[in-house]
Design a protein around this nucleic acid. Structure first.
Lengths: 240, 240
DNA sequence: ACCTGAACACCGTTCAAGT
DNA sequence: ACCTGAACACCGTTCAAGT
């Protein structure tokens, strides 16, 4: 099995370089370094955070399947069941990793929106930043949306962080409505539509379902333009 | 862990009933019926097809995690390694299931498009049929798009079936362009955009990320309208 | 409270052996 | 060719026991 973990797209002049990082089969085994120092037995400082960080690292570098409770606890240098003091489940750990991902995504979106002038250009940058995040953190992105944390249950944390990220979009829509750049429909609904567009583009790109001459880069630009005509102020007195 | 396997939405009058089927924990164990009749030992007729069908059934009824090579072979009444004569891998079996899903999806889309008159109404029906398929076959849909069959590799079958499904969309776009209903841009690109929209809506709905007063039904209608303004013929001489 | 080490029931995959 | 049954190395999770 091949795992695609990372897609980097760099632009040099008018040449775009697509760099796909993947691993075949299992990840490299953890070295036999006996990290479990018997000298300092107790209290890890912030074990929960350490586990979360190691989990995220494994997902990003070697794919979702590499996130094993055994691997995580071994690498952190802690016994298997110590992990269960901080996470009820493997699902719970994955949910924590996903929540962290949404936090990172939110930051990336906010930066793109704010540094590009909070206008039409900023909104385009926001969309591009979204797709770029998904492609750059391919495996990570799948954890965030793969249904790992299906419904409301443990998802409290994930739910909060994802709505935080979504809020950036909503605010960008509202700002643009004030500036007369976006039609005066329900901003929540408009933001959901925009989210669906970028999410759909990102997912199709990740699944390799974007064939032909269209690379993710140009598709994003195209989608951005269509999105603009879809939510922009109407040219004619149309409604509904 | 809760697994959402099925979402049914029925409309009675102006009341929409959302029925979510889910299982907690493991699925019911296979009964101890010794299906392995020692009387007729060899040749199963079409073992490959039987395995594929049982795999799809397990995914649809109990979730992706229930698709175990042991469970599939047991239920079909065949030894574990007999399965490896037809599928090199668990991935390969999952890929087969996904391919079957795309075949079903294609049929649903074609039916919606054709029975609604191959026009604007037909295109709306196509979009609704897409989202409806995703919600009705939630777990199945995740197998199709969950990155199970990451890149080109074994994906030959999946790739073919998914592009077949996509082709329905492209042809619908082309037909509408001929009728002057859709702007004369590259139909391939327009179809990709439309796909991204419905796929994005479907995924967000499946992840429970569509909060507030917006149910998937109304969102689809909303998205459909925005999509129309996004790919429809321009009202002003605008371009590019 | 937090951690340990061993155990349990499962999994995907392999392989010598049968017909 | 197709199938079998036993084995292998791995999982997630649990639990009595330690400090």
């Amino acid at each position: 099995m091949w795992n695609v973990n990372n897609v980097n797209i760099s632009l040099v002049g008018n040449v775009s370089v697509v760099n796909i990082v993947c691993y075949h089969g299992a990840m490299p085994r953890t070295p036999k370094t006996p990290r479990r120092t018997p000298a300092r037995p107790y209290h890890h400082g912030d074990l929960r955070h350490a586990l979360l960080q190691e989990g995220a690292r494994l997902v990003a570098r070697y794919g979702v399947d590499a996130l094993t409770l055994r691997a995580v606890s071994d690498r952190v240098g802690v016994s298997r069941s110590a992990l269960y003091r901080h996470f009820a489940d493997k699902q719970a750990l994955l949910a924590g990793v996903a929540a962290e991902g949404f936090r990172t995504l939110r930051a990336a979106l906010a930066t793109a929106w704010e540094t590009q002038g909070r206008g039409a250009a900023g909104f385009d940058a926001l969309g591009e930043a979204y797709v770029r995040f998904a492609l750059t953190h391919a495996t990570y992105y799948r954890v965030m949306f793969g249904g790992v944390v299906a419904q409301g249950e443990i998802a409290g944390d994930v739910d909060g962080e994802s709505t935080n990220a979504f809020q950036v979009l909503v605010e960008a829509i509202v700002d643009q409505q004030r500036a007369g750049l976006v039609r005066p429909d329900d901003p929540h609904a408009l933001a959901l539509f925009a989210w669906a567009v970028v999410h759909g583009v990102a997912m199709l790109a990740l699944d390799g379902l974007i064939p032909g001459p269209l690379d993710p880069e140009t598709l994003t630009a195209f989608a951005s333009a269509r999105l603009r005509t879809g939510i922009g102020v109407p040219r004619v007195p149309a409604s509904a």
